[in-house]
Amino acid sequence: MASKKEEPQSPKQCVGPDYRPEKQKPTATVSTEVDFENVHTLAQTPQLIALLTMIRDKNTDRADFIFYSNRIIRLLVEEGLNHLPVVEHTVTTPVGRTYAGVMFQGKICGVSIMRAGEAMEQGLRDCCRSVRIGKILIQRDEETSLPKLFYDKLPEDIAERWVLLLDPMFATGGSAAMAVEVLKSRGVPEDRILFLNLIASPEGVTTFCKKFPQLRVITAFIDQGLDEKNYIVPGLGDFGDRFYTM
């Protein structure tokens, strides 16, 4: 690795609430900025950074890994749901005051890319109780080393729904791109797909957004890059293994 110093570095900044002076805020590595309108990164709050630190640490045990990733996933889902349409709706409160609020509009469903994406289903259910969830199994073909679709089971009326596509690690985006192609072939318009992930790579985001400019990506953090094995760096290792089997 002669080109080490040319490797991109993630930005560092002081993180903390506005009322605290800069010098009282600790410094941390924060998400890399990317130049795509449809990429939404969660606010880099100290609590989010601390949660990410927890799940990135190779010494964190499985119980903690599951708990802390679930907390981030719930925040991701909450942010994702903000991109769904609402209509004005005024109600009367129990104390007789009127409240000019909004009502959720449109049906949704989740689609998880097996198996790591299934780890995000709990977080989705925490926010949307009876949400329908489809599944897609994509594996790397050992001969061609390209992603290959092995299985899918999706709601029949998926074309009329907003789709929250779930996969925690967004590395090259190969599987996600294939999943999007599957969804599009079932009649889901690109602009009704929200791709929710915990950690993304700048490379993955760039290829993906050029390919699907209408689709929205919601992520907690965009990392520094990919290593030679296409793992996200610094990343958190294999999410599925750490969540399910390690």
């Binding site: 560092k12 600790p26 601390a50 630190t53 640490d57 290792g237």
Partner: peptide, 17 residues
């Protein structure tokens, strides 16, 4: 919060909180 550096399973360091 305080600053802390952790090592991820891929062997990289992350400077977090």
């Amino acid at each position: 919060f305080r600053e802390t550096t952790v090592v991820t399973p891929v062997g990289s360091k992350y400077h977090g909180l």
